[in-house]
Design a protein around this nucleic acid. Structure first.
Length: 209
DNA sequence: GATTTGATTCTCT
DNA sequence: GAGAATCAAATCC
């Protein structure tokens, strides 16, 4: 049997339609022999250039989001807030620049290693509860941006579930404001690792004189 | 060239 | 519940 090195065909369908199919998938990193695996329980869909004001790709290709414009099945990992990394799976046909943000999951393998990377996590369910936490628990940084998730030789791999986990709720996306807030593209499972919802934070509500 | 903001998290109150 | 931490890229003039 040939190993699957390419993304399945359905990953080229519209991102909002396929995002729920990532629920229950397992993202596994093998960094220097340390293996951590996370079962995904929360995702968000981000569409491409000109379509989705909440997406990094909305204003076109840039240095940071170049991976989004590549072929599906790659990891798009970006740096934000000066200290955090967030992990996505590129979907859609090459050039469409849509992606699914992996927001939270349950560590099912390598709990010890994940705890070492996330010393501030009080409970195991907090290890990968939130996009930056998930990336940190897996040890993912910009170094792994562009990794082919379906390549057996890749240090970061994604295993798709035979049957996705049931979608418990669909909500607007966390931290996305403006027109992008109108689209309910956040898909969550009924699971304690799902991150708490926060509406788009309004920065500087008071600009004092 | 300077300024602003961000698909966040942690800690303290 | 609020504020700080901290840096790259995008935006504005």
């Amino acid at each position: 049997m040939q190993a699957t090195t390419r993304a399945p065909r359905w990953m080229s369908e519209p991102v909002a339609a396929i995002a729920p199919r990532f629920l229950g998938s397992v993202l596994r990193s093998n960094l220097g022999g340390e293996i951590v695996a996370v079962r995904i329980t929360e995702v968000e869909a981000y569409a491409g250039e000109g379509e989705d004001p909440g997406s990094h790709a909305f204003r076109g290709r840039g240095k940071r989001n170049a991976t989004m414009f590549g072929p599906p099945g790659r990891a798009y990992i970006y740096f934000t807030y000066g200290m955090h990394w967030c992990s996505n799976v590129v979907t859609g046909p090459e050039g469409s620049a849509s992606a699914v943000l992996l927001r939270a999951g349950e560590v099912i393998e390598g709990v010890e290693a994940a705890r070492e990377r996330r010393p501030s996590a009080r409970a195991d369910r907090d290890l990968a509860r939130g996009p930056a936490r998930l990336s940190l628990a897996l040890g993912l940084t910009g170094e792994y941006d562009g990794c082919a998730l379906f390549d057996p030789a890749s240090p970061v791999r994604l295993a798709l579930p035979q049957r996705p986990l049931a979608v418990h709720a669909v909500t607007p996306r966390t931290g996305v404001g403006g027109a992008g807030a109108a689209t309910a593209w956040r898909f969550i499972c009924d699971h304690p690792t799902v991150s708490p919802y926060r509406a788009a934070a309004r920065r500087r509500p008071t600009r004092s004189p």
